[in-house]
């Protein structure tokens, strides 16, 4: 029992950190554009699929981990520049537009990649013992990479010019324009970074789950939940919420069925939405 729970705790933390990455991307875009990007789950899936091809091509998971998010980041730029830019001030219309983009990405992948799920082998196969069970070292590596990425994002937001601009635009858009910040450029880069984060999340999840064209659909909802519970626009809140929720779900799944654990967390989410729409960690 103790080993079961400790495995569930470890899995909860690892999965929580992966979910934190995609939620951060979603939240970053929300904070700036005040829009829920319905295509975000599809970008996560696109990251995993791109990684699968890159691994076929180069044989290296680590190359895929770098190139796939770059590729998806460029896709993000294309979406923002080509499609969303003209309707950014209409949140509801943007939700519908990104829903359409989600369909397009999913169906394109279905056409090219096919409908069957495929596996990505984990590049690290060592295991180490926890009590009487074995735990794959790759998952620890995944958690470690996620933390590095989040630290990188934090440094980017706090220490670079673009990060400063982004924070300025989130705080007061009019003022930022007045101070000469190139707001449209900031939008573009935010979308690129947000998309790349979704792709990182997808690549890191790929060795744990299987890669298929619908894998982003459920994850999108998970990311919604995390962003709302953590507070929209509150990045640190998202990280805490991601780990917390996936810990609760992971440990809860030992005692009740996973679907009941999901219903339970959705019910909590409805209560949060109604009682504290600004999120648990907001002011």
């Amino acid at each position: 029992m103790i080993s079961n729970i400790s495995i569930a705790l470890m899995n909860g933390i690892v999965w929580g950190l992966i979910m934190a990455l995609i939620a951060l991307g979603l939240n970053l875009i929300f904070g700036l554009l005040h829009v829920i990007n319905m295509a975000h789950g599809a970008l996560y899936m696109l990251g995993a699929v791109a990684a699968w091809y890159l691994i076929e091509l180069t044989g290296s998971f680590w190359i895929a981990l770098i190139i796939a998010p770059l590729f998806v980041g460029i896709v993000g730029i294309m979406i923002e520049r080509g499609l969303i830019r003209t309707i950014e001030d209409k949140p509801i219309i943007t939700i519908i537009c990104t829903f359409g983009i989600m369909l397009v990405i999913q169906e394109l992948v279905l056409m090219i990649f096919g409908g069957a799920p495929r596996r990505i082998d984990s590049p690290i196969t060592q295991r180490f013992p926890i009590f009487e069970l074995q735990y794959p070292a790759m998952r620890i590596m995944i958690a470690f990479i996620s933390i590095i990425l989040m630290s990188g994002l934090w440094i980017f937001l706090k220490k670079t010019k673009y990060g400063l601009w982004m924070r300025a635009v989130v705080q007061d858009r009019e003022m930022a324009v007045g101070l000469g910040i190139p707001v449209t450029k900031v939008y573009m880069w935010t979308f690129a970074v947000g998309s790349a984060l979704a792709a990182f999340s997808g690549v890191l999840a790929a060795p744990i789950v299987s890669v298929e064209f619908m894998m982003g659909r459920e994850v999108l909802i998970m990311a919604f939940i995390i962003v709302i519970v953590g507070g929209m626009g509150n990045l640190a809140g998202s990280v805490v919420a991601a780990v917390l929720i996936s810990l609760i779900q992971g440990v809860g799944s030992i005692f009740v069925s996973p679907s009941m654990a999901m219903v339970f967390s959705l019910a909590i989410l409805i209560i949060v939405l109604l009682v504290r729409p600004q999120g648990l960690f907001g002011e």
Binding site: C97, F99, G100, L103, V104, Q106, E107, L110, M111
Partner: peptide, 11 residues
């Protein structure tokens, strides 16, 4: 993938 065209039309 008929939804591909549906998505494009929607966007």
């Amino acid at each position: 993938a008929t939804d591909l065209v549906v998505g494009i039309v929607l966007v």
